[in-house]
């Protein structure tokens, strides 16, 4: 059964900030959804191969050929902050 600590852990991994109210709410709702999902355990899948690809395909490859890149202004056009042709982000370490 999922508890608040699990929700906090998942939120940490997903880089989501949740307030107390959201934590409570998600703990309950996700718990309900996972309860529903638990019905999967009713099916015997011991010898079943998992399906990641519904249409079986293999070896989709391209030639090692250089294609034109985007003009740099276009690459940076949506950047919330930029400097000297680079994307600018807040510093890495906290004080």
């Amino acid at each position: 059964m999922i508890d608040k600590k699990d929700v906090e852990y998942a939120a940490g991994l997903a880089q989501l900030k949740l307030d107390e109210e959201e934590k409570e709410k998600y703990t309950e709702q996700i718990g309900e959804i996972l309860d529903y999902v638990d019905k999967l355990s009713e099916l015997d899948t011991d010898d079943v191969v998992p399906t990641a690809y519904t249409v079986p395909m293999k070896n989709v490859l391209r030639k090692d050929e250089v294609q034109e890149s985007l003009p740099r202004e276009k690459s940076l056009a949506n950047a919330p902050d930029k400097k000297d042709g680079q994307f600018r982000a807040p510093k890495i370490m906290s004080d």
């Binding site: 999902v37 999967l40 355990s41 099916l43 899948t45 079943v48 191969v49 998992p50 399906t51 990641a52 519904t54």
Partner: peptide, 8 residues
């Protein structure tokens, strides 16, 4: 588990 059920 879900991927296996997907196969079924």
């Amino acid at each position: 588990k879900a991927q296996k059920v997907r196969t079924l």
